[in-house]
């Protein structure tokens, strides 16, 4: 069955017709051309297709497009600011060698971003717990964990991070 859905996509109110059996991954890549979201395993094991829905990281390969009705979706395309400046997490991944082939990067960066929204100063174990559903076959994870740690803020600067994140949410 087809139906009309409306949701916030990277800050833009989006309304379009979808089929009930479309996954969010299919909608993003094949219908909206947002190919930053990758398909890896297609069964929730690898995390390459991760986006943030209402603040929570989810696997778009196991999430029906119909379920984003009324929700807020953030994909990797919406993370940088409109003028092209990269998000601090993206910059940190580049600066710390957290990117090699790049296939896991969009999902990895969004998982890390969702973590910092909940916990502005995670320790190593918390970081590992948060990205455990994102497989990277290049880096060995050390550089990725470094990149996330360097984006995170010490306890006293938590407020700053929260304020900054709400800025990007409104753009």
């Amino acid at each position: 069955m087809s139906r009309q859905i409306s949701f916030d996509l990277n800050g833009n109110e989006t309304s379009l017709e979808i089929e009930d059996h479309w996954t969010l991954l299919y909608l993003l890549r094949e219908k909206l051309g947002l190919t930053g979201t990758k398909e890896g395993c297609g069964s929730g094991e690898c995390g390459a297709c991760t986006v943030i829905v209402d603040g929570a990281a989810i696997n778009t390969c196991l999430y029906l497009a119909v379920e984003v009705e009324g929700k807020t979706v953030l994909t990797i395309e919406g993370l940088a600011s409109p003028n092209g400046d990269l998000h601090p997490m993206q910059k940190s991944f580049i600066e710390n060698g957290g990117i090699q082939c790049g296939y896991c990067s969009p999902g990895m960066i969004l998982s890390a971003t969702a973590l910092l929204e909940e916990n502005a100063a995670p320790d190593d174990d918390e970081i590992k717990h948060a990205i455990a559903g994102n497989i990277c076959r290049c880096t060995g994870y050390v550089q990725i964990i470094d990149a996330i740690k360097r984006t995170s803020q010490p306890e006293t600067e938590k407020v700053k991070v929260v304020a900054w994140q709400s800025d990007t949410g409104n753009k």
């Binding site: 929730g44 995390g47 991760t50 929570a56 990281a57 989810i58 696997n59 196991l62 999430y63 998982s111 969702a114 973590l115 717990h129 948060a130 455990a132 559903g133 994102n134």
Partner: peptide, 12 residues
């Protein structure tokens, strides 16, 4: 519950 699947799986 904290070790079922991954964050993404647990969120859904």
């Amino acid at each position: 519950v904290k070790n079922i699947g991954s964050v993404q799986i647990r969120n859904t």
